[in-house]
Amino acid sequence: MQNGLIITLPQCDDATEYLTYYSKFVTKEAEKKGIKTKEIHDNELNLKDFIKIIKKLDYNFVVFNGHGTTNSILGHKANVILKVGVNEELMKDRIIYARSCNAAVSLGVECTKNSNGAFIGYIFPFVFYMNEKWSTKPLNDNVAKLFLEPSNQIPISLIKGNSAKESDINSKEHILKNINKILRTPSEPDTPFIVEGLWNNYLGQVVRGNDSAKV
């Protein structure tokens, strides 16, 4: 296995558009640290191509952006690219961050069985609010930023050399700081909804497998 980052970047709806835009910060950090990166876009986000890429590049760090279930992660639209009972053994000994709903419930457990790897993900749906005004310019959306910056903290922290557990903690601290920031500014109508969503992600974020694992 070699050092490198594989990152999935679907753009099939507004949510995945946002995740893909915000992933630029992750790939920029990887570039800064000289980590080889393979971006997988919609045309390759199907099971066959995903398996081919993982086997060929054999990079040790994988970031999934995309919809998920308790036992799978999707690529482009409804294409499953990782699933229990299909190809989870390909994740053995790798470090994975899955920005996908519920994937840590079963998939995360199975991916880290008999493995030195780690799986950071969510046991509930990962949520974020977006301000519709900025739907075509996600990076200007200060509401979505409150959710996606702490989430980005996980892969960025791993790239900087922190362990899975340290990266999880760094991200959660960022969530709490964002909650604190919103609560301290004059109350807006969206405040309780944003805080509720951030708290959801805080509660739902877990590390499976080897929490000392590093990229």
Binding site: H67, P125, F126, V127, F128, S135, V143
Partner: peptide
């Protein structure tokens, strides 16, 4: 103006 993304 808020929309909620829940991974669906």
């Amino acid at each position: 103006n808020l929309k909620l993304s829940m991974g669906f």
